Amino acid sequence: MTDLLVKSCGPMTTLQDRGRLGFQGFGVSPSGAMDRRALAMANVLVGNAPETAAIEFMNLGGSFTCEGGDLHVALVGAGAAMSIDGTPVPPQTSAILKEGQVLDIGHPRTGTFAYLAIDGGFAVEPQLGSLSFHLRSRLGGLNGAALKAGDRLPCRGSGDEREPMQLVVQPPEDGGAIRVMLGPQDDYFPSETICLFLESDFTVSPQADRMGFQLTGPRLEHAKGFNIVSDGIVDGHIQVPGSGQPIVLMRDRQTAGGYPKIATVISADLGRFAQLRPGTTLRFRAVERAEALAAARGLKDWLAALPSQLTPVRFNLTTEHLLSRNLIGGTVDALASAPHE
């Protein structure tokens, strides 16, 4: 079995897949990849199912090598760059990491989260059906922890012949206001506050992590106070505590909460929202259920079509590339095969 060795990485470098679903009734957060679009793209590039666990980088990159064989690898997300032994790999392109080579991942430049997928995924024991690491409960990950220098990740490997591939596509709806559906407690806010929420600029504060993004902006006043009987939380719920500053709840959120929720980020926009860096200004736009469902179906169709968008990498025929390939085979001795006189 081939192992991926961690030489260095940031403090919140973790294993993430689609998440730990079906346990919220027991108080277990779903966790999972912050940007499922980028996770799917990285996995498709190496021939995996879109929701296979990958390494998620938050703000910082890392350095890796492998032992026991070669690995087919791909990095997608937030403008992070990948290189092998110092040679850059083009964006949204997979590559073969040969045993002993060094894989360097740069920090995300245009967002927050990037994903490194490995052909076949990781041979790590899931917890409650998922490899996703949840910081506060210490579920998932590698031995219940985030990754650190010196860790060794066993890789399954598909056993298939591997060829570098590329994806020349962009996720849908990559700009514009973040779409929300009002509620479920929008009646806890006066109409003036609803208008203020939808017509104002908000900024992502430095208090943003996998559990929630604190926003700063105009104070959102409550009509019935800011305490409610605790009820269920879903990804994208926007709570408004007593401070009047909204908090968008993310993948590592709690499963129940007692602040009124003015709106909910639609599922199709949550990955895009997750990539907003601290200091980024944004606006919200209210949509009806029909538009939210259409956007969700559109994203699902886009993800399903990703394998059909794969194309083989076309290398430039440089001297270095030609010398790296075995271009000679089936040689014969011309004299030995000549007829005797």
Score class of each variant (00 low, 15 high):
residue 272 R to K: 13
residue 324 S to A: 13
residue 259 Y to F: 10
residue 57 F to A: 04
residue 38 A to P: 12
residue 126 P to Q: 06
residue 250 M to E: 06
residue 124 V to H: 03
residue 340 H to V: 15
residue 195 C to V: 14
residue 39 L to G: 02
residue 218 P to R: 01
residue 275 Q to Y: 03
residue 317 L to V: 15
residue 281 T to L: 06
residue 267 S to D: 14
residue 70 D to P: 09
residue 17 D to H: 00
residue 168 V to L: 09
residue 65 T to K: 02
residue 151 D to L: 02
residue 143 N to F: 12
residue 243 S to G: 15
residue 340 H to Q: 11
residue 335 L to F: 13
residue 255 T to R: 08
residue 22 G to C: 05
residue 293 L to D: 12
residue 256 A to I: 12
residue 189 F to P: 00
residue 311 T to C: 05
residue 17 D to S: 03
residue 252 D to V: 10
residue 171 P to I: 07
residue 306 L to M: 12
residue 238 I to Q: 00
residue 19 G to M: 09
residue 83 S to V: 00
residue 309 Q to E: 15
residue 245 Q to C: 07
residue 319 T to V: 11
residue 128 L to G: 07
residue 203 T to S: 11
residue 221 E to M: 14
residue 299 L to F: 14
residue 105 I to Q: 04
residue 17 D to C: 05
residue 177 A to P: 15
residue 140 G to F: 01
residue 304 A to E: 12
residue 252 D to N: 08
residue 268 A to H: 02
residue 7 K to E: 15
residue 164 P to G: 07
residue 284 F to S: 02
residue 269 D to I: 06
residue 154 P to M: 14
residue 75 L to C: 10
residue 212 G to R: 01
residue 316 N to T: 12
residue 336 A to N: 12
residue 71 L to R: 01
residue 20 R to S: 13
residue 23 F to S: 08
residue 49 A to D: 14
residue 118 I to P: 02
residue 231 D to A: 08
residue 97 L to D: 01
residue 314 R to E: 10
residue 66 C to G: 00
residue 164 P to S: 05
residue 113 F to I: 07
residue 188 Y to P: 08
residue 64 F to M: 02
residue 296 A to W: 05
residue 42 A to R: 13
residue 116 L to E: 10
residue 78 A to C: 10
residue 313 V to M: 07
residue 128 L to Q: 11
residue 141 G to M: 04
residue 175 G to Y: 13
residue 168 V to K: 01
residue 49 A to Y: 10
residue 29 S to G: 12
residue 310 L to Y: 09
residue 123 A to E: 14
residue 93 T to P: 06
residue 199 E to N: 13
residue 179 R to A: 11
residue 241 P to F: 06
residue 11 P to C: 10
residue 69 G to S: 07
residue 203 T to M: 15
residue 272 R to L: 11
residue 294 A to R: 13
residue 306 L to Y: 06
residue 227 N to W: 09
residue 33 A to T: 07
residue 71 L to N: 03
